[in-house]
Design a protein around this nucleic acid. Structure first.
Lengths: 229, 229
DNA sequence: CGGCGCCTTGAACCAAGTCAAGCTCTGTGG
DNA sequence: CCACAGAGCTTGACTTGGTTCAAGGCGCCG
């Protein structure tokens, strides 16, 4: 049909989306400040549940350290991971009063926990908080949209997109993966075998290096960007 | 492009709501009310573009009648549809200042268009509006999460889920599909052949009837619910 | 040193994609 | 009123990317 790509040039530079990285510069982020002040830090062990599907959604969470997976168990015991959250990320937004996903710590994690009702009450008074709540939800919406687009790509495109997403969270070309192959597979809607084979293939193609199974070095960004879609 | 610029119609004056698009009487929904009052109704023809990816996101939209598809073109010309919107739906939420998807009318459609800046300004004054904006965004987030979960299921599960989703929008067991097989395929991340074969299969299994290609009758909800995962 | 997660690799299989007809509407012009 | 053209949908035969099943390797910690 008639979809024009008005500026092919802008296409290239957009290759690695900035969407996920830095939230609009920190100055006076009253929501984050609020959570930092009001939140109670709690520690979770490896694979410990933070909340479960169907449980009442009473809190908002902010990761201090560690990594969290948000997931749902589909029929046939299949697990689909919807997001990984790392230090700085806020999660637990729900429009219903129940969680529609479960959350678990992938490794030792410290999480700030704050009552949703308290935040909502504050939002009703402070317009800044309300606006940031909306902004965060909209950003999360965009992230999930991106994830949905991932799930219709080929295995190689999914794995590469995942690597670039992870690389985008920390500077440098070396990426430390906090999650297992199974976690990656469940995030990408693939099997661990396919993830493993694809990574091996990328290494053979000299696009990445795999000094250890949890460590990936991006060696050829150009090639990777091309592969990721 | 230019030629496609939505042209405000003279019908703007007789905007007294057409029977069809009337949402469930908006008792106290200030956001919907706002859009109904402030919005300018615009008509779009079949396949006409409402907005395109990368364009500045200046407006919010509410469907009065007709159906809209929200989509993105991936590499290799593949089109992924992210949502179908029908009468009553509000769309065009963006956290960035540019649209990340394109929107097109699937068939003749009438859409209320309202400046985002106007709504945002109102939200800053009226807490009710702000809360509803957040609620709508959160609901949209939940919808997209559901769509992402769809995309990792089998072809049959996807098609059945789609039918149940469509059926859930209108009462009764007969579903009128406003979109083509290609649209359905692009929404479900399948090919038209697979969609067609799956529908035929469901008909053979007496789960549905297909009096015509755009009309589906759900005959066995029990079986369908089981199939959709 | 031995046991246990976790990861990789190989081979066989299958669900969905691709390619290629052919069918069924629907609107149009003779 | 029929012929006919074109778009949209279905069906069949074949191919393939990714899964499944099965085995083996690697690294870590007691």
């Amino acid at each position: 049909m008639l979809t024009q790509a008005p500026r092919p040039t802008t296409e290239a530079r957009r290759a690695v989306s900035p969407a996920r990285g830095a939230p609009p510069a920190s100055h006076g982020n009253s929501l984050t400040d609020t959570i930092d002040l009001m939140g109670a830090p709690i520690s979770f062990g490896r694979n410990e549940e933070i909340y479960g599907e169907r449980e009442p959604a009473e809190y908002l969470y902010k990761v201090i350290s560690g990594t969290v997976r948000i997931y749902k168990i589909l029929s046939a015991g299949r697990r689909q991971i919807q997001a990984f959250h790392v230090a700085g990320d806020i999660f637990g937004f729900e429009c219903e009063h129940e969680h529609t996903f479960s959350a678990e710590a992938i490794n030792e994690a410290r999480i700030l926990v704050v009552k949703r009702s308290a935040v909502m009450a504050l939002a009703a008074l402070d317009n800044d908080v309300a606006r940031q709540l909306l902004a965060l939800t909209a950003r999360e919406l965009q992230r999930v949209q991106g994830h949905a687009m991932l799930l219709v790509k080929t295995a190689q495109e999914r794995v590469v997109s995942f690597l670039l997403e992870m690389a985008g969270r920390a500077p440098g070309d070396a990426v430390e993966l906090p999650m297992s192959r199974q976690d990656i597979a469940d995030y990408l809607g693939l099997t661990i075998e396919t993830v493993s084979r694809t990574l091996t293939g990328l290494e053979s193609a000299a696009a990445i290096a795999l000094p250890s199974s949890r460590r990936v070095v991006l060696r050829n960004h150009r090639a990777l960007s091309r592969l990721c879609s």
